[in-house]
């Protein structure tokens, strides 16, 4: 990775982190758990990395496949659980 590219990615990192800090400043206590669950599903974005690792190769490919299975469980399960939580929410209201 070239240094210019790295600095550019660092800019992205800093701005996105700031965005993350600001986004959830005033969340009501009832939404703590769903928000945690929802952002857990989002952290499954590592699925993108896993897809890119399942390519020609031997051990590296198998490692990528394990990563892809785990990441997909994280993503699909994460969103489904969050949706169930929020559904429950609506019925109560």
């Amino acid at each position: 990775m070239s240094l210019e590219n790295f600095i550019f990615l660092l800019y992205i990192l800093v701005l996105a982190s700031y965005c993350g800090f600001e986004l959830i400043a005033k969340v009501p206590p009832t939404l703590h758990t769903p928000l945690m669950s929802g952002s857990n599903a989002i952290s499954g974005i590592t699925i993108v990395g896993a897809i890119l690792c399942v390519r020609e190769g031997e051990i590296s490919k198998y490692l990528g496949m394990v990563a892809l299975i785990l990441a997909t469980i994280n993503v699909v399960g994460g969103y489904a659980v969050t949706d169930r939580m929020l559904q429950m929410f609506k019925k109560k209201k």
């Binding site: 992205i12 800090f21 952002s39």
Partner: peptide, 24 residues
């Protein structure tokens, strides 16, 4: 991992979750 693979969507989304997770 975004820095490993030079992938911006991983970096942005990871940073969003990382930062909002700490605040939460």
């Amino acid at each position: 991992t975004g820095f490993v693979l030079n992938n911006s969507v991983l970096i942005v989304t990871g940073a969003l979750v990382g930062a909002s997770g700490i605040i939460l």
